[in-house]
Design a protein around this nucleic acid. Structure first.
Lengths: 160, 160
DNA sequence: TATTGTTATACTCTATAACTATA
DNA sequence: TATAGTTATAGAGTATAACAATA
């Protein structure tokens, strides 16, 4: 049996309460961001569940709308997923008649991806719902704080 | 075949370049945070790979160190994972002699979880490496911005 | 009867290699 | 031969039900 180097005297208020968060971990942006992100993501998942859509499907629709006719390889890159992951995602959107793959390029191996009229209409609704949900899930911040957070996140991602 | 409502005239600089990010998605904190988080998380994964550890294993060690003797149920809650997920994680830490499960409670169903001496020693090294990695992956921000980001993330998570 | 930790299981997400059809 | 999209597959991560030992 291994020797214990510390006495088991906990610093917890009660032995059956939640453990206090380690001060060290709280100093890491990565740790804090992961916890916050999981919370926001779950909120988004719940919001979109009413439409039987996953966040990646919604993002895909928004990117297609902004870049009609783009190729799957480019869409995959924009979503930061691998091309094989895109196949079932697009199949689902096509089966619901929200998007279409069209052989419309000089290179006949590739498809141009477009939203259907239904897809565009639904996207309008989704955009509103998603923004609403995003504001809800960041309601702990005032407008200035939310704008600052957004700016810092973009700065991080774009490595400026 | 579905009717297309938009001409396939792309707004892309070149037809073979990456699609421009949708302006709408960039207005969502959730979207920006997910992208930034994935980037930071990957950086952490790479940093810890030298030690054959996953982020959750490192976090577990830090929480155990701060709360020696805590029960698995409490550790699971602190890590925001389900108790069954903790079993292989702790098995791995035990097999590497970094942590131990000890039947040391009045309630003999539960274990007290402790770091071994080796575990504590490794954790010291890991803390330094992880902080170093965290600062690296947020090097796009100056000290004040990093502190602000940390504050806003905590505010979001703690719903204040 | 309820709870701690565990097993078994399933579903999602992710990543890679191999295949097809075009180029 | 190289590339776009697809298929097959395997590995994580996650979630739930059911079980054994203890309360």
């Amino acid at each position: 049996m291994p020797k214990l180097e510390k006495t088991p005297s906990l610093e917890l208020p009660d032995s059956d309460s939640a453990p206090q968060q380690a001060d060290y971990l709280d100093s890491l942006v990565g740790y804090a961001m992961r916890r916050a992100q999981l919370k926001l993501f779950q909120h988004t998942v719940n919001k979109l569940a009413d439409y039987d859509l996953r966040p990646a499907q919604f993002s895909a629709m928004a990117i297609i709308d902004q870049n009609p006719g783009l190729m799957q390889a480019d869409l995959a890159r924009a979503l930061a997923i691998e091309p094989p992951q895109l196949v079932p995602l697009l199949n689902k959107l096509e089966s619901r008649a929200l998007a279409v793959r069209v052989r419309c390029k000089p290179d006949k191996r590739s498809y141009g991806i477009f939203l259907s009229k239904q897809g565009e209409q639904l996207l309008k609704e989704l955009r509103q719902k998603a923004l609403e949900g995003d504001i809800e899930s960041t309601s702990a911040l005032d407008d200035e704080e939310r704008a600052t957070l957004l700016r810092l996140l973009h700065k991080l991602y774009h490595e400026r």
